[in-house]
Design a protein around this nucleic acid. Structure first.
Lengths: 407, 407
DNA sequence: GTGCTTAGTTCACAAAATGAACAAAGTTAT
DNA sequence: ATAACTTTGTTCATTTTGTGAACTAAGCAC
């Protein structure tokens, strides 16, 4: 069971809840939101200011009378750490208690290494950031870890992760607790966290039902249902990369044939590009490869698309169509109002998006697509780190009666 | 906006919540559940008894001391009506305020008729049941309506229903309000209600994430996520019947090609059976058809399966495999812990179930199927009517602060 | 019966929330 | 400038709400 780090009584929790909607609030804001009497608001605000959770900032603008005395969350209460671990890179951010990033660092990582090593390196990176910020270890209130695999959220461990099978059951929470004993540690799947980031800081703000689709080396999905992350029974909900699109397709790393991931994700696109060059279908790509030591990258295919290279366009459109066909099924099933596309491959630009949209519209029920919007995530590559910070902050200040805030 | 019929203060709502877990409770039960003091429990119980929401029943068994004075919900507060409207039949049940059915009636119905006529007939049926029970119109507290199509739940109207396009935007709520002005009316999709029934009275009790799949003339799904019905953005979530299984398949009534429903539901099975007879592949089926005026029914194929008829088995297995293939994708995506199969076709018995299970296990990620259970709904054909009654009762006695109980 | 256990009530008291009066700090019209 | 009004926030006596502890009620076990 996760131990909650900072317990709030229900009145304090109510104020924190207001703070999650408006970042700077007056006593009158709390009055309106909570339905409390002026007297109670006054008293509770004094109490929470005394405890140091809130601090006063400069007065707001007058609405025709006395200026409101604005307050915000006390950013100096401590720091939170967000770790966004991808298949090939890791990003670590140090943020204040409001979630504003004050220090960050990214570097390549290899999840095929043992978990001890990778998380050990994360620990070093955190310590480095703390040092830069001049911050003590016991000032770290919480650490959030996003990992590229299925997570048993309540236990905080990976379960049967295809990318790094050896990490199964590695005790991530206690590993970080060793170095940061005062910190509270949460672990979640990286795509869930991207969805959370989008729902807090992106266009999914206030959206109840949406999907976040990450297209990169693999393809993953994050699901929001009724305003909350849907993690499923084993924490592996959203794993759309291994949905079958062609029973006779190539063998996927999961062992099955014709998985979406094996046919439409980064490696498959590269493979198709190389094949096209071999077949002499694209002189442009051939030149690009030759001037890059024989290596083809997604960025190169992307730029070939922009140049109007037919072979590159065909590959991207085919990929988009396969992804769109799968999404069409999921749209019928789940009826989201938005689908956000993110991840490394998403910068292929409009060709990919148009192909996805077209496939979804063609194969979904009209009703399900009536108000459906399919777009790239505008936040970009930071969505994951924002999401993981949001998750930590959600769980950091928690009502004593409801230890697990809805996410 | 739905107007709530009976407002409870938060203390009363708390007690009602206890009642939804245990149907007969003592003051001590409330004490344990609510965390209130003995004094408050005593006082609140007296108040709620005075209001008539609870009534005392005979004492419970002693736990080694004084026998607890048990209470239950006052069944005589009034009546609720559940209407389960299928494509070809309608069932109306009259239940007391606890949800115990006291009168019920079923008859054929035709949703191709105008909505006025069908719901008018429902009204007559309700009035008949009220008469039988000796109950006045103003004793009807609530009416729940389950309809076979996508429902905008908050407005209580059908949206683009494929089966009965003319019913779109028919004001079901106000139609019943005309005859039953005191009643509170909720409308929902029939499969959502079957899922709700399963989650309240079936094996899905306490299950957070599950799917209910109805196989009949069409194929539909009801989704539970985080313990609540997931209705989606347009109320059409769960529409798995029109997921594409074969791009070159037959044209579905929705206009697309190769929908699951067009290939694996009742009519497709009948069609395949007729084809098999034409091809001379099944003497048994041929005899059956001849002795039934040339008509082939699902029940006949079912019994042919039991007799071991190869052609019938092949048809059922193929249908199960297609359904299973689609479910495999949804299992990867949604990661439910249970899938319940119900509806008219589900009595095809184990051959269908085995084929579905095999296809799901073969195509889903091992992690997603680790604790997955796929079974027929044991409640059987009553699950819909139980679900609709549960929905009405959920919305009938509502906390003043939270008008919309989670479902 | 006697002592123990569970169930439920009563009531004096304590804690929590409120309304109304009041204070503070503005804006606007004259 | 200043009087009148607005919005914001505090204080405090009063009311409302909830509690602990003592008490009644009713059973069980020996």
């Amino acid at each position: 069971m996760i131990k909650t780090p900072i317990l709030l009584n229900s009145a304090e929790a109510e104020i924190i809840r207001v703070l999650k909607k408006k970042h700077v609030i007056s006593r009158t804001d709390i009055l309106d939101f909570s339905g409390w009497s002026k007297a109670k608001v006054s008293q509770e605000v004094r109490s929470i200011l005394d405890k140091g959770y809130l601090v006063e900032v400069e007065d707001g603008v007058s609405q025709g009378g006395r200026k409101p005395r604005m307050m915000r969350f006390n950013a100096n209460l401590g720091y939170v750490v967000g770790i966004d671990l991808g298949a090939t890179s890791v990003e670590v951010a140090l943020a204040d208690a409001v979630g504003t990033i004050v220090q960050r660092v990214a570097e390549p990582a290899d999840v095929h290494q043992p978990a001890e090593e990778v998380f050990g390196r994360c620990t070093e990176l955190i310590l480095g950031l703390l040092d830069l910020q001049g911050c003590q270890i016991d000032q770290v209130l919480g650490i959030g870890v996003g990992v590229p695999g299925p997570v048993d959220f309540s236990r905080g461990v990976l379960v049967a992760p295809p990318l790094m099978p050896d990490w199964e059951n590695f005790p991530i929470r206690s590993f970080f607790k060793k170095t940061f004993p005062t910190a509270f540690v949460v672990v979640d799947n990286d795509v869930n966290l991207m969805a959370l980031g989008e729902s807090r800081y992106g266009e999914a703000l206030g959206v109840d039902h949406f999907l976040f689709v990450k297209i990169g080396t693999g393809i993953g999905g994050g699901i929001f249902s009724n305003g909350k992350i849907h993690r499923g029974n084993n924490g592996c909900a959203g794993d759309i990369g291994h949905i079958c699109v062609d029973k006779n397709g190539p063998i996927c790393r999961c062992g099955n044939r014709g998985c979406l991931e094996a046919m439409a994700a980064g490696p498959a696109i590269i493979q198709a590009g190389l094949q096209a060059v071999q077949n002499g279908e694209s002189e442009l790509l051939q030149q690009m490869i030759e001037s890059n030591e024989g290596v083809l990258t997604p960025e190169m295919i992307s730029s070939a698309c922009r140049e109007g290279d037919e072979a590159a366009l065909r590959i991207i459109r085919a990929s988009g169509q396969m992804i769109g066909d799968v999404l069409a099924s999921l749209v019928n099933f789940f009826n989201p109002s938005h689908i956000f596309i993110g991840g490394g491959i998403s910068n292929f630009g409009n060709h990919l998006l148009v192909a996805i949209r077209r496939a979804v519209l063609r194969r979904s029920l009209p009703l399900a697509t009536t108000h459906l919007q399919i777009n790239f995530s505008r936040i970009g590559s930071d969505v994951g780190i924002y999401g993981v910070l949001a998750l930590v902050l959600d769980y950091l200040f928690v009502d004593e009666e409801k230890p697990f805030l809805s996410v």
